[in-house]
Write a protein that binds this DNA or RNA. Structure first.
Length: 468
RNA sequence: GGCGGCGUAGCCAAGCGGCAAAGGCGAGGGACUGCAAAUCCCUUAUUCCCCGGUUCAAAUCCGGGCGCCGCCUCCA
């Protein structure tokens, strides 16, 4: 598989040892519910993980939880709670949102506060090796001590100075230097260190947790493209200054969500909470929506666009549930078109994980399935359905079983269908249509076909499939 | 000012040197139907923002425009 590496700006073959992919994805800072933009990397990289697993790799998937940070402290103060309480609360909520999106639990979800002593050790190492310096109990990383600084984001230090939007901190030797350890104010959470009580600065946690759980060099490190600078640039500098080894083989950065062309962000105020969008359209519609656009490109979010994705998802399930309810027949002629489509599905994913192309292939498989059914090739329809299940499953889509109705409900619906059939024979069309409409209001859709009437349940807000 | 990305049908969106340009939505026509819905079939870009260039061959490569967006500050 080839993936676009931010570091080299080209497609690179994913080469791993022991058939194991070591993958680190930047997680949330737990000071609030996650918004729908935060959900993009979670879904996209979860889909990548599942796809790699479906291709036979073992994936160790780490997503951190940042549970100590200025915003958490501020929030705690506002709510009269401790920072720990705020972090614990929003960590729970975050995990709930992940589940509602059909995102599998990471292999590890390390919390920053559990790694403070290891962060202190890293900072000590950097001070000892001359990559960091201490000023008034704060510790700064010296960007001039690391020649590779800027290689990820393509930024040259001197160019940045011209912009001069960054406040010049007198204590820093170079404007680009960044805090590794900050002395804490009396009322703030703090940890002991050789430089007095304080807390970790930016970027250090990911380096430490990544190294601890995945080793000094990871295969994939992923996150939103807004993290390229300064966050990932600074991580890279610390990690490689400390170990002298490459920190990451392939950097992956997803495009951001926009709203009417403008970037979605908490500070802009044009965001929606993941939870609210999922309540309205279902988690799987959100997932399909994200996978229908190349993961590196910006994606314009709107309610209508997600609603369209939901209709598409519903239609696929209509086909799946209908085909699976068909009587079993001995397999008919294999359909060569299905093989070709399966191949295409993999070809486009192997080349930079182009999920929109793969979804296109999936749609065509559905069409072939409908077509087979129309032609009374039940084996063909079933083959198409199981292919959709299998391929969809490799991206975390289309795994829901037909919603169970009680036997009693089934019987009553059948009774109503029979009654309506009688009414139609008697040409009592107003009454027959009334039955159809009332059932429709209850979420039961009737379809009259050449072989009689079938029905399907349309849940108001479908839950995403269980994780395989 | 520096760095990066994008511009493909009414809309969304693949394709990134060689089949007169996937797929979805929407729209139109037809089949089926008592009428619908669903489904099926057909139609909907001779052309890929504009202008030059390279090439036997370009949406795809190069140069120059125009337009939009992101990052450079916590941010997925």
């Amino acid at each position: 598989m080839r993936l676009h590496n931010t570091l080299t700006r080209r497609l690179e073959e994913l080469v791993v040892h022991d058939n194991t992919v070591r993958m680190y994805v930047c997680g949330p800072t737990v000071y609030d519910l996650i918004h729908i933009g935060n959900a993009r990397p979670m879904i996209v990289f979860d889909a990548l993980r599942r796809y790699l697993e479906s291709r036979g790799y073992t994936v160790i998937y780490v997503q951190n939880v940042t549970d100590i940070e200025d915003k958490i402290i501020r929030r705690a103060r506002e709510e009269g709670r401790t920072a720990d309480e705020v972090a614990a609360h929003y960590t729970e909520e975050y995990l709930r949102d992940l589940a509602s999106l059909g995102v599998a639990r990471p292999t590890h979800s390390p919390r920053a506060t559990a790694y403070v002593s290891k962060m202190v050790a890293l900072v000590q190492d950097l001070v000892a090796s001359g990559h960091a310096y201490v000023v008034n109990d704060d510790v700064y990383f010296s960007v001039e001590s690391f020649p590779g600084y800027g290689k990820l984001s393509g930024r040259v230090r001197d160019d940045q100075e011209a912009g001069a939007r960054v406040e010049v901190d007198e204590k820093k030797r170079h404007p680009g230097d960044f805090a590794l350890w900050k002395r804490s104010k009396p009322s703030e959470p703090s940890w002991p260190s050789p430089w007095g009580d304080g807390r970790p600065g930016w970027h250090t946690e990911c380096v430490v947790m990544s190294r601890d759980l995945l080793g000094e060099t990871v295969d994939i490190h992923a996150g939103g493209s807004d993290l390229i600078f300064p966050h990932h640039e600074n991580e890279l500098a610390q990690a490689e200054a400390a170990t002298g080894k490459p920190f990451v083989k392939i950097w992956l950065h997803n495009g951001l969500l926009t709203v009417r062309g403008e970037r979605m962000g908490k500070s802009v105020g044009n965001f929606a909470y993941t939870r609210d969008v999922v309540a309205k359209h279902g988690g799987e519609a959100v997932r399909y929506f994200y996978l229908s656009r190349d993961w590196r490109k910006p994606l314009d979010f709107s309610d209508d666009a997600v609603a369209e994705a939901k209709r598409t998802v519903d239609r696929v399930y209509d086909f799946l549930w209908a085909a699976e309810a068909l009587p079993d027949r001995t397999a008919g002629e294999p359909i060569p078109e299905l093989d070709a489509l399966e191949k295409r599905f993999h070809v486009v994913l192997e080349e930079d994980f182009t999920t929109p192309g793969a979804l296109g292939a999936l749609q065509e498989i559905v069409r072939v399935g409908h077509c087979s059914r129309q032609a009374c090739d039940l084996g063909g329809a079933k083959a198409a359905a199981s292919l959709v299940r299998r391929l969809g499953g490799s991206l975390g889509l289309f795994q829901s079983p037909r919603p169970a109705t009680s036997t009693l409900a089934d019987d009553v619906i059948r009774l109503l269908i029979a009654l309506r059939a009688d009414l139609r024979v008697a040409k009592q069309f107003a009454l027959a249509d009334g039955v159809r409409d009332k059932l429709g209001e209850l979420g039961v859709e009737l379809r009259d076909g050449p072989e009689g009437t079938t029905w399907a349940v349309r849940p108001p807000s479908p839950e995403p499939g269980a994780c395989p």
